[in-house]
Structures are given as C-alpha cells and as structure tokens.
Amino acid sequence: MNLQVDENGRLRHFLSIDGLDRDILTNILDTAESFTGVTDQTIKKVPLLRGKTIVNLFFEPSTRTRTTFELAAKRLSADVLNINLNASATSKGETLLDTLRNLEAMHSDMFVVRHADSGAAHFIARHTQPHISIINAGDGRHAHPTQAMLDMFTIRRHKAEFKNLTVAIVGDILHSRVARSQIIALNILGTGEIRVVAPRTLIPAGIDALGVQVHHHLESGIKDADVVIMLRLQNERMQGALLPSEHEYFKLYGLTEDRLAVAKPDAIVMHPGPINRGVEMDSQVADGSRSVILQQVSYGIAVRMAVMSLAMRSQQDAGGTQDAN
C-alpha cells in the first residue's frame, strides 16, 4: 500500500519521490507554475489554506528550508507554527511518538517534518491521525522530495523535454538525501541520461540500480551535460576517512569555468545551497551566467505552495466532516 496517495491516486502525504508516478510529479510542477504569478503580485497571497494550521516540525536545524516552507504556507493564507526540537525533547526522554501526540492535540492539519533519521517522515505518517498530512522536509540520508521537485521545476523552466537531457550530479552522493530524490525524480520524468560523479568513497553501494551511470572523474562526468548539479560537501566529511582534504577535493571535483567548458555551451549549473565557495565550485561559476542557484531558491516557494495545497486538497475531500469537529 502506498501511504502517499489516497484511494483516488492523489497526493495525500509527500514523503518521498519514490512510489509516485509521472502524473503526480507533473501535476506538482504545473501547479507550481500557476503559483509563480502569486509571488510577483503586490499582495502575495491566495486564500487556499485559510483557517488551516501548518506546523513546521524541525528536529534538525535549518534556516533556509524552514523559511521557504513558512513563506509558502503564509502565501496560501495558512497559520504557521514553527517548532524546533533539535533533539531537546528526546533528551528529556520523550519519544517521537509522545511529541506527535502532543502536537495532534493542538488540532493541526499538516506537519512539515525534518528529522535526522531516515524514514522518520514515513514513521510519522503511519502513526499520526489520518486527517493530518505529512510533508517531508528532509529525513536523514533518505529523501528531500520538495528540494528535488524545485530542482525539476528549475530544469523544466530552462530546458525542453527531460528525455533529451543529460544531467550530472556531482559530490557527496553517499550522504545526500537531495541526490537520492533528484535521481528518482529525474528517472520518473524520463531523463535521457543521469550521471553521478564522485570518488568511490562517496558513492553508495548499488547506486546503479537507481538508474544512473557512475563516473569518478569530473571531466567525463560533465562532458556534454545539459544540467550540472553540484552537491554541498559537509565539513565533517573532509575530516574523516572519506576524503583527504578540501584542497584535493577542489582540485579534482571543484567546478571552474575552465572545467565547465566540456559541458554543453548552454548548460545550467545548480546547487541546493548553501555553497562552499572554493570547495564545490569557485565564485566565477556560482555567480556566472550559467548559474541558476538563486532562481532555485525563489522557485522553492512556488513548489512548496503546490505540494502543500495539493496534499491538503486530498485531505479535505477525504475528511469532509473533519472541519466540524
């Protein structure tokens, strides 16, 4: 049984890209397209979720993702509650389930959840009351589906058909929930060729089963690519046994204008942010004409508005009596 869709095949929770079909993804992108106008108006609001309460439930620190979720909810006219738990609740011996029961008692309609454990969003969706919709804002190394969808949105805005595209994802694939969700979304949307580029220490076992080609050298990895996605390299990775140094990483995998020359001339460069300048890429690329990194951020709001309104629509139709309670 797929937790994420209702009996009519519509989005109910948004936990991972895995398990969704092309129609649902396309519907999210189309809906996001319709919301981009809202952001440009002087009054940046639509009344779709008026009277709804959305809880941003962050068990892991985040500023950017939380802020865009908050803005998206407010533009849909919902009430927003931000709760940062940063493991403080669990250190008091309260289980995740206890925390959820308490929040349910506050009559919320949607939880936007970020948690350090893979599978946390699935767990929460399984154990909260059925009228609450769960949006995954990142769980462990597993998934970050709204980030992947805003990346798909960005690609669709700049490029034509996915089937003619070559997309290269460069960096720490092993620990990246963003990369996992991107790969699955790109496949569902029928992308021509998907490559991952990293040293072997940062490539997870059996990644080829997800439908990607593995490259260990940047030049071959981004050759003739239409889209180059650079992943953030966490500082702690560079101090472990996975990589010898920042210096060597940049030397081998850092994106510079020179290196980018092997990609298609109209290639776009993306990054989920925040960028480590001089590690993943140099400033010339980050601020250059082919970079669409800031557009990703603003599209993020429209995409999250789309996901929230679609999931809430399914919930409203399912539980018509819920509002009366």
């Binding site: 190394r141 597993h142 996992r180 076992a205 059996g206 089963a209």
Partner: peptide, 15 residues
C-alpha cells in the same frame, strides 16, 4: 545490509 535497499532508503549499511 549495504546494497540496493540501504542506498534507496538512505539507511547506513553494513557491508
């Protein structure tokens, strides 16, 4: 197990 499922689910694998 470190393999397809650990990679798909993002769970730390045991080789």
């Amino acid at each position: 197990h470190e393999g397809r499922v650990s990679t798909r689910l993002g769970l730390p694998g045991i080789p």
